[in-house]
Design a protein around this nucleic acid. Structure first.
Lengths: 176, 176
DNA sequence: ATAAAGTCTGGAACCGATTCCAGGGTCAAG
DNA sequence: CTTGACCCTGGAATCGGTTCCAGACTTTAT
């Protein structure tokens, strides 16, 4: 239970990690690592038994990927960047522009989301007043107040209807 | 070009709208209206030719749906609510709780997104400095600074990788 | 009469990161 | 030799709102 990672005994020995080791070390599922590979983000060598073998610095690369994703980059963005990079190039400017674009998106998203929050607050306050001055489980008309909301139809709306309030239950020989 | 809506001549006559009329009146595609029906949100009557016929107040309902969506409600949420409601019930409390939940989500999302924005700003500033003191198209190391970012792995990350910066080109006998 | 526009249906595609699955190897410990 | 823990592959499912499709019918305008 303490030396989870040494279970396979590979990660400290010759400096190479197997997929499970890397998964634990980087906090990502093995499935996800294979997916990153399909996307061209990782290129582990293969051992005789065709097991993937990752160099130690793969952990850094995965962390980089996770951070980039958290900032709004897409896997395809990273694929493009890493391709140039692994070929010896310096995709500095692309990276910078990409980040700048993301910042723009995030800022307008923040704007919209703030509006949504304010609308929701207003709505709740209004509804609570109305509910107070109304006998239980009889009248309503709460929804009608919605029509008054000016929806900018921006990207925020679509975003709200996604994952939120949904927790995944991972399988894959999950433990711990 | 001026009297677009009177093209079918139905919407002012007997007070019922055909799907195209409602689509124009509510700013939603006919496809979407059919989808809402599949989801149980609209129940237009049918004329002899099996065309959908919507009462005038359907426009309000659609507007209500759009506003609710913009606030983060899901179609299934609305389906449940409208079901109770159309049966004569008053789903006030459910609606209120739902909205309260949404507010919570939006607020934590705002929090995360603000962090992301700040990280992006910091990153850009840092990169610009580095790029300035570096000959063009040679060194880089921009991405390395990403590893330093503490990603809370919250819902914000997943949201950023969606629709943003993608515009759809609708068809369906589009005009205007 | 004929063309153009509108409508019908049910099902599939889309977006993107991740997860899940089945069927089959590999390897160490008991 | 068997058990159990890993690993392999490639393809499909997931989430949700919307769009798109094909094939067929109806209405409206020319």
């Amino acid at each position: 239970m303490s030396n989870q990672q040494s279970k396979t005994g590979q990660n400290g020995k010759n400096g190479f990690l197997r997929i499970g080791d890397l998964a634990r070390a980087s906090g990502v599922s093995a499935d996800t690592l294979r997916h990153y590979e399909r996307k061209g983000l990782l290129k582990p060598r293969r051992s005789a038994n065709s097991y993937r073998e990752y160099p130690a610095h793969a952990v850094d690369r995965v962390r980089m990927i996770r951070s980039a994703l958290a900032l709004g980059f897409r896997l395809d963005d990273l694929t493009r960047i890493f391709k140039v990079r692994d070929a010896g190039g310096a995709p500095c400017r692309q990276v910078r522009e990409l980040a700048a674009g993301k910042l723009d998106e995030v800022e307008s998203l923040l704007q919209e989301l703030t509006t949504v929050r304010n609308e929701l607050r207003k709505l709740l306050k209004e509804w609570d007043q109305r509910l107070e001055s109304t006998s239980a489980s009889e009248p309503a008309r709460l929804l009608e107040t919605l029509s008054a909301i000016g929806f900018t139809n921006g990207s925020a709306s679509s975003l709200l209807n996604s994952n939120l309030s949904k927790r995944k239950t991972r399988k894959e020989t999950k433990k711990k």
